[in-house]
Design a protein around this nucleic acid. Structure first.
Lengths: 204, 204, 204, 204
DNA sequence: AATGAATGAGGCTTCATTCAT
DNA sequence: AATGAATGAAGCCTCATTCAT
């Protein structure tokens, strides 16, 4: 279920790029119900036959988009972690959350759609993988912070909670009231939440 | 977008019930992509014509299911709040979260589907309304607890965070690893989280 | 293909009347595509079962309406003929045409619909029968006027032409520009036309 | 409401042609109630999908047929007028009527159906436009003949009468007794009628 | 006589995908 | 490599009609 061909010639790259842009455009401007392969090909200025030369089916269009989006997310977040020199404290969490929000705001509409409208198992899997990756990164930071085993149920639970809390709050805010994401009150609360989870050793 | 007829004879109540059960069954066992009106009618042992006498279109099947589900959720949660005699403390939050989890576990698979696979705006609206209701209830409890104005941005933000955190953590746990929902560790963390948000006055 | 029962009790007459009125109303206000048996029954305040007790099928509803309409037409026109004391001259034709137009104007909208939208063979047959009846009446008047055999091809052709010319001109005027029907110019032309056909002996 | 695609390859021209022929065939042999898109596609030896590539809906099939038919009609009649060198006299009218009848006889059955069975507003509009075009052409000839203003109510009324009389008489004859159309008696009467209307200046 | 729930054939249309050119 | 015509399974829904109550 991956692209039939990996475009090697620049002509092909242009085609693939046009198809993905058309997909994005339709998703954004017309909604997922307008996302038909013929429509995408049309908008991309490409024949339907060409579309199927690079994408084995409709799903793979959206999957590719998600994959690219998730990759950006991962890159941004791992960069923050790797570049961070100081201690794992409130400052770090604030920085982390700010970048996380920024990544989502950068592609605000597409993100919303991908999260709200994408059902297919394949696509969900891509999203889930990213989630798990974050969760493990968080677990390892937590383990160091609390001086506990990374694989312990407590650490895993905390990692699960932190990861999903931040993710879903940002997601929901994006859909319900995106302005929240720019407010200090919202960010402060999120940072407090994360700090709280990180600081208590679990016996509280 | 409402039922065409309100069944008057007992015969038709049976029909409507059969249709809703078939809808649930298909959603659960075959996924939303298998939810076609003909398939539902088939499984319900009812003619397609009968289905359309009580449901104006495919959407309304799922809408009805969601409405019923949301109603159960609301009933259970408001009951907890109304019956609670003591103070708004950790015990209350624990009780609240336990019931909340229980409500979701009761219809575990359906809940998953409804939250994961339902796209239609109409359905989303029903879910959103329930969300907002909870958020306002939470806001009013918070306002009393912290002795602040219920409409203040801080209270609203806190209510948004608490509500969505609990909701989405339970949802995600349901999908990813339902066993979590029965573990003390998970519940404790959640309770801690909520307590933390309730206890800090926002300047922390 | 006639009514299953002939209503004998007054209760039944009321029902039948209600059904026909509902049919007329829907035809007039909503168009023929809205003419469904269930809709008619609804509007008549009668159960669909009752409708089928008096009308064997949907067609028969419209057929009955047409039959009644045609009967009125025939009654009016034969009355004119029978009551006419003088010679068959321009005055007679004028009178005849005026009454003919009046009959159509009386039920202007229904007439339009019946002529424009009714396709079914059964209905067409009723209309055709009326046409032929007029044609034969006209032929007999013509035969006397011109002192020729009523069955001769010339008389039949003239009768056909007169009958259909008047009928179709009135019909078309009704649809395209009903105001014409009240204008002296229009009526005069029609009268001239008819006079012309009646007066020439065919060798012109 | 126009063809989705204009066929570019010759292959598709064949397809479109087959579809239109199938439409005609079904209309002719089975009646408009048998004119379903699937049936047309079947008879055309084409997939239902292909039909919908060239015709946006069922209506457009009939619309296309009518448009083509009306175009032929207009072409033939304007040719007669343009090629006529002599005066506007009985000979001209005879020629005109003969060609008019011939055009209808050429596609005798289709013409019948189109005029009898076609309800849709869109289709009626196409037919009406053709009617009005003829009426205006007639009005202009009449105006010259009688030396009156083309836009005067008298001329317009006469044009309306001539046009519709000829048209509806030919139509009806076609349905009721097509043999009439070949008889001198019928044609003579029609010519007389038209001459009569053209010759009187309106005050007769 | 009346009711209205139930029926189901069949209509229209979409759209992912294939394949001959 | 690209094109775009062709495919057809399958979806949604309507509505004339029947029949148990």
């Amino acid at each position: 279920m991956k692209s039939r061909k990996t475009p090697k010639q620049s002509r092909s790259k242009v085609t693939v790029e046009a198809i993905l842009q058309a997909t994005t455009h339709i998703l954004l401007k017309e909604g997922i119900q307008a996302l038909t392969t013929n429509h995408v090909a049309d908008r991309a200025g490409v024949s339907i036959g060409s579309l199927y030369q690079y994408f084995p089916n409709k799903e793979s269009l959206v999957a590719e988009l998600i994959e690219q989006h998730v990759q950006k997310e991962i890159n941004s977040m791992t960069a923050v972690i790797e570049e961070w020199q100081g201690a794992i404290n409130e400052d770090f969490f604030r920085k982390f959350i700010q970048v996380f929000i920024q990544v989502h705001l950068d592609e605000i509409e597409l993100t919303q759609l991908l999260h709200l409208q994408v059902n297919s198992l394949e696509c969900r899997d891509v999203l889930r993988k990213a989630s798990l990756l974050f969760q493990q990164i968080t677990a390892s930071i937590l383990a160091k912070s609390l001086n506990l085993n990374e694989k312990s149920r407590l650490i895993q639970t905390k990692a699960f909670i932190v990861t999903n809390t931040v993710d879903s709050l940002v997601q929901t805010a994006l859909v319900e009231d995106a302005s929240m994401l720019s407010e200090a009150i919202f960010i402060d609360e999120l940072v407090q939440l994360v700090c709280h989870i990180f600081n208590q050793s679990g016996e509280a």
